[in-house]
Design a protein around this nucleic acid. Structure first.
Lengths: 204, 204
DNA sequence: GCTAATTTTGGACAGTCGTCAAGATTTTAT
DNA sequence: ATAAAATCTTGACGACTGTCCAAAATTAGC
């Protein structure tokens, strides 16, 4: 076996890294569909173009693969509302844009979101992901705070809560809505949109 | 095998039910310690006084056992703050009592709480628990709302948020604190206590 | 085109899982 | 005390798990 570290060719290194990306993507697919408890390496391989054996060619073990996948997941996860912040021209616009964006991603990306909550929850039991989870959580908090801070600027009032409290509250709302949405309650997204907008006004 | 339904003797029925309670209790122990993903029937049996085979004498399969355990869990889970509400004589007292009670149970019962979040999260993937989880969630919401409503009475101001929003926000705060507490951040409980008290004032 | 290195496959492994049933043990009824 | 019923143990089953490895397939260097 040839380790990535020993490589010389730049192309080869890139290809090696590219395969890892590819397999991590398949891992995320499997995790989103089946949940952590039921995601096996063979399931992951089946979502990819390869057989199950190849996973140990690119990753030392399951933990390394999943850790890598979690880190990859982070990237798409922590800038979701920045566009809304940039686009909004007033407090009202931002408030409704934020609510709509949350409701939208709830409707569209439910499987991906439950994957995140599953991983975060798993880190209550397993130490391996905890560092990455806490890191992502912090970035999500920053993301939410950018919305709240901007809203406070528009409203020309100071924010009444800390970034931690704001994030925890919006996250709680989202998690609640996710459970209801997956349980088939079609009004979950609409209610989330309204609740998010209402909560924002209470926080600044 | 003799089913409980066919029994005549009252004592026998009670004993049958008692064993189920007993085994469900062992199941909760195992779930709290290992998490849903790694809890096996043999692990559960090992926490009890019996061998693994007996589980299928008292329960049809694993799902029935776990479902029963979840329902049992509900009982201890949804009246935790009622004493605080009953004891408080003023808004200030209630506010600090609520925060202290949350911080207290975070410190004392962390394993039990992560079990709840694990089960609730699992219901994002598996339909089997979903009904019970939603039911428990509702009761927890009522429990939190009794606090908020009472606080509003004391303060002689109307509550500014719905029961759903209040519960989601406090739950989000608690979940956040639980993760930090389990990650070894000793100040998590203290911060939770302060944040809960602060958030309560924003909600009424 | 040939050799050597890299990449991928598919099967084998030891272990664990949920489930089941036969037999041993205990409790109950008469 | 004895037979019947209820309860519990033990070992087995097929399926699945993460991991590893030898061999096949592919690619790269000359």
């Amino acid at each position: 076996m040839t380790q990535a570290k020993e490589r010389i060719s730049r192309r080869a290194v890139d290809k090696f890294a590219q395969r890892r990306e590819q397999l991590a993507e398949s891992a995320l697919q499997a995790l989103a569909e089946l949940g952590y408890a039921r995601t096996s390496l063979r399931e992951i391989a089946q979502k990819s173009d390869f057989s199950h054996g190849v996973l140990h060619y690119y990753f030392a073990d399951k933990v390394e693969l999943l850790t890598y996948a979690v880190r990859k997941f982070e990237e798409v996860c922590v800038t979701r509302y920045d566009d809304v912040v940039a686009a909004a021209g007033s407090a009202e616009e931002l408030k409704h844009g934020f609510g709509a964006a949350m409701a939208g991603t709830l409707r569209t990306d439910a499987a991906m979101h439950r994957l995140w909550y599953d991983l975060r929850n798993q880190s209550l039991f397993e130490e391996s992901f905890r560092g990455d989870v806490l890191d992502i959580d912090e970035q999500r908090q920053d993301m939410v705070w950018r919305v709240v801070r901007r809203y406070a600027e528009f409203a020309e009032r100071p924010a009444q809560v800390s970034p931690e409290v704001a994030y925890a509250a919006f996250d709680g709302l989202f998690q609640r809505a996710l459970l209801r949405q997956l349980a088939g309650q079609d009004e979950a997204a609409d209610r989330l949109e309204a609740d998010v907008a209402a909560l924002l006004t209470h926080f600044v």
